[in-house]
Design a protein around this nucleic acid. Structure first.
Lengths: 214, 214, 214, 214
DNA sequence: GATGAATGAGAGTTCATTCAT
DNA sequence: AATGAATGAACTCTCATTCAT
């Protein structure tokens, strides 16, 4: 179930009807913005990583800011919904699935996803901190994500009396909080952790099951 | 128990044996780095906010990078330990204090602290994402923070059988995770939330008590 | 007698044996050079006003400079001689025509011509100021203009004792000077004057008759 | 009576309270704008002619456009009024002065002035053709020039019956027209004419006296 | 002939840093 | 110690020109 954002990003670029060079520009931008941050990346660097002349960058994109916008918007408006859809659709659950197993699956999957896509997550996090427009776009997108199927599962477990009768958003908040307590340190310290997703997801599931008991 | 980082930052500057002008420079730097980010702040802006000539900035500080270093180091090596000390020292607990009350106090206090010091937290978070040196410094400092007294309290509650026998770091991780699930959205969306610390800390305590039950 | 330069320019283009697209390029160039000046006009703008791809511009013309050359040369070497010929040929004069009537006709005609063709005159004036080659071309052309018929008329009036025995060029200089004193302000302030050609030519004729009396 | 605009321009710069380097920048700008036109002059060229670093140009002036503005405004709002004042004040005329002598003096003086200051006149002419703001500023300034003393002289000659009873502005128009018929060709062809101011002013005076007879 | 994406030299501009005062 | 004009490397961006399609 875990995806490579870079692959989905490339698919998005393919749908954008731009030339191979322009795609290379956007890929180089994503990579460099992720590695060094937007302000510390020069258009010259982007061009040379993309094997392209500086002017080519500006053929399609009006400014460096617009380049960021396009990269971020692709992530927010194209990649994130795809990721969310595939994630939600990929959740395997039957009438017999215990909540613990269900939760373990979700958590392991999302942790693996985070660990697999640290650079792209970092760009989004960083730009969200600096750029108001990005904040609003991301927020607007998150609100619209199709979590209905997931919501239904949780409602089912609530009806069966397996988990507490809290609001769906509150439950999500705590799952994200506990998962984040493992993932955020990794996001912030690149290359320092050997992330053991199995161990982390096991622990996180344990505590969350306890937390969400009726 | 909650503190104003800016006040502690000023105290730190007073101890640094620098002139009033240089203090103003550091204060202006912290403010502007927090508002616009390091890269988007020019030395001219810093100088003019500090009511000082550009040259004066370079009298004391070798470079703009050093200026950031000094600001960040002051926060990490002076302010954070003070904050931690005062926090830990300020925790009121007796033999009769129930764990719930103890936890509620801690959480409310730290949430209030976070809400009161958003700009400074933002600088640290942002620079930690871009700047490897800052990452290492912050990490090295956190490890050395004097949490022994706190640790003892938790050990006590564990001995009394009031909380689960998890590792202290694991317990802290979950507390930070749950508290973070309320605070992080506020850090990322400046000016959008009316933070109701009372309500938030109440909810967070409720879930954490459940989570930490034996 | 007054002509539209744009019409003559088009005729010139028709004689040039170039494609419709290339004609559109030259027309767009003339228009944009006149509106914004050569340096402030980009080849992209020319192409898009001409509804043509940039490459098409360079199919026919070696460089942007050559484009200017062609436009200017068409004006100087084709349009101006035509204008001059038609003007000179169109002067109606018989043995009975008084000098005043003759002069009034000439002046009114040329003033109307100037007012009708301000944009093209502006291009020529502007480029003449910046571009040495244009200066030389224009000068060389003016010297060769076929003013013989006009010269004869003036010689006739001189023989009849109706006008002063000045050199033809000196007479022309003063006519141009007086007419210019009305027209130049209009050239320099686009859109500010309601040019009353009747009134202006009347005044100019009055003073010139006086001036050219024997 | 004839002045060097460059000297008056320098005086204006001295009154502007700017450093020697900044003065050099403005002088270099005037020179280059005059020689090659604004668009064909690069900030690098200005800096190197002024013996200054590129950055220095931008220390005082926000943009290349502002540099032009400052140069033009100095000419229009400082130099031109000074020139006009000195010219009008310098006109020597007594009750005995014949109109012809009076006119000859004026014309020779202004022709000499024009010939002596061709570069600066060229900048103004050229920018007036391209730049609407300059047009308005120049026009607004010309209207306010203090020609009262001159007007009185002409009124005197009119009362004495020595010249025709035309409106002052109409008389000025024709003087400018005739003088212009000698000067404009020189403005437009730099370095081609050996301007014989004596001969030119003599001819111009001759025709103007005739023209302005009652 | 026509196209327009690609090119890269060079433009205007910024800004961390220096240094004479 | 403080000043701020001066510096120039490096940035973003433009645009005349080319060339594979």
């Amino acid at each position: 179930m875990a995806h490579k954002v870079s692959k989905l990003f490339n698919e998005t670029l393919n749908e954008m009807n731009i030339s191979a060079k322009q795609k290379a520009v956007l890929q180089a931008s994503l990579q460099l913005f992720s590695e060094k941050g937007f302000e510390n990346t020069s258009t010259n660097e982007i061009a040379s990583l993309a094997n392209v002349a500086v002017g080519t960058v500006y053929q399609q994109f009006k400014s460096k800011d617009q380049l960021l916008q396009v990269v971020i918007e692709s992530l927010i408006d194209e990649v994130i919904p795809k990721v969310a859809n595939e994630f939600v659709a990929g959740v395997k659950v039957t009438q017999e699935t215990e909540f613990g197993e269900f939760l373990q699956n979700i958590i392991q999957d999302r942790m693996q996803f985070a660990v697999d896509n640290l650079p792209q997550i970092r760009v989004l996090v960083r730009e969200t901190m600096v750029n108001k427009k990005v904040q609003q776009q991301l927020q607007a997108r998150i609100v619209k994500l199709p979590f209905d199927r997931l919501k239904d599962f949780f409602a089912d477990y609530q009806q069966k009396g397996q988990i507490v009768e809290w609001d769906f958003m509150r439950i999500v908040r705590y799952i994200v909080g506990i998962v984040g307590s493992y993932i955020v340190p990794i996001i912030f310290s690149p290359g320092q952790h050997e992330a053991d997703v199995g161990q982390m997801s096991h622990e996180a599931t344990e505590v969350l099951i306890k937390e969400l008991k009726p």
